[in-house]
């Protein structure tokens, strides 16, 4: 029983990281019909931003302040990744609207460049980010221990997702995003600047990838290829969750996280992956368009 609960907890914490990564992917795919392979590198950028903030704290501030670096690291990771994402959108992606396969390949190229840049700046070997004392150790509830860092990650993701729901469904910007998603031409003709909606939304999704990168520094060492490990799983979340509805992404991310750790618990890491892939293929037999979808009668 305890084993199962802590596996479930691990599953949810993995799922919540996937969710943070997949949110940006799902929204930009729904909005602009582009798939961003460089999204993984935006995670990596967020992680290195955290590393830089931490190094600055170590170098310039008294030791007693060190614990608080991660509070500053969250906005730093968000802003750096959002800025690079915005640049990426402006230089590459805006040429590729409505060409998902091409955008996948072109952004893969952009990802290669970003990875190499990270290698040139920070060196190829992984670097470790020291967890703040505040988040090390575990909380024991009914003799089951929950690592504090993972609890923090879950809370962080919950906050981000709540913000996203609010932004998406309650603000005028969110309304514009949904309008463009449903019908770009119509939205444009009633005066929405689709260009601006696209670039801000893309930057926002990139920023969330950056926060995911910050969260990953709490789990293990980081390196230039950090994002690649997560990007395919995040894509699977988009495929399973469907496009255009936040709720689908949330359920799919948590589901994949829980199934993944569950399968790994009962078999082993590689068989777990095979089983997960099989389950996803079977799931798509039932819902080829994912859990939720903006239903239209449009063809092609």
């Amino acid at each position: 029983m305890e084993g199962i609960i802590s596996q479930l907890f691990n599953g949810i914490s993995l799922g919540s990281i996937l969710l943070l990564i997949a949110l940006g992917l799902a929204i930009t795919f729904g909005l602009m019909n582009v798939i961003n392979m460089a999204h993984g590198e935006l995670i990596m950028i967020g992680a290195y931003a955290t590393y830089v903030v931490q190094s600055l704290f170590i170098d310039y501030l008294p030791e007693s302040m060190f614990n608080w670096y991660f509070i500053l690291a969250v906005p730093a990771a968000f802003l750096t990744a959002a800025l690079i994402g915005w640049l990426l959108e402006w230089t590459v992606i805006r040429h590729l609207y409505g060409r998902p396969l091409d955008s996948l390949l072109a952004t893969f190229g952009a990802g290669l460049i970003l990875q190499q840049a990270a290698r040139s700046i920070f060196g190829a070997p992984n670097v470790g980010v020291q967890s703040p004392a505040l988040l090390s150790g575990a909380v024991e509830i009914f003799s089951i221990s929950f690592p504090k860092s993972r609890i923090f990650i879950i809370l962080l993701v919950t906050a981000c997702v709540l913000f996203m729901f609010y932004y998406f469904y309650k603000t005028s910007n969110g309304r514009r995003i949904r309008a463009v998603m449903q019908n770009r031409d119509m939205a444009s003709s009633v005066g929405i600047s689709t260009r601006q909606v696209d670039s801000t939304t893309f930057a926002l999704g990139a920023g969330f990838a950056g926060i995911a990168g910050m969260a990953l520094t709490l789990i293990g060492p980081i390196g230039p290829t950090l994002g690649t490990a997560y990007i395919i799983d995040a894509f699977m979340v988009v495929v399973v969750g469907g496009v255009g509805m936040l709720l689908g992404t949330v359920i799919a991310a948590l589901g994949i996280g829980v199934f993944n750790t569950g399968f790994e618990y009962f078999t082993n890491a590689s068989m777990g992956r095979v089983l997960l892939f099989a389950v996803i293929i079977l799931f798509l037999q039932w819902r080829p368009n994912g859990l939720f979808n903006l239903s239209t009668r449009k063809l092609d």
Binding site: L101, V274, P288
Partner: peptide, 26 residues
């Protein structure tokens, strides 16, 4: 099931990931 376009591409990518993990682990 008319799964096509980028969805199919993502699934082929997942196939690579799964197979490579399997080869490495066996």
């Amino acid at each position: 099931n008319r799964i096509k376009g980028v969805y199919f591409t993502i699934l082929t990518q997942a196939l690579v990931l799964v197979t490579v993990t399997l080869i490495v682990s066996q």
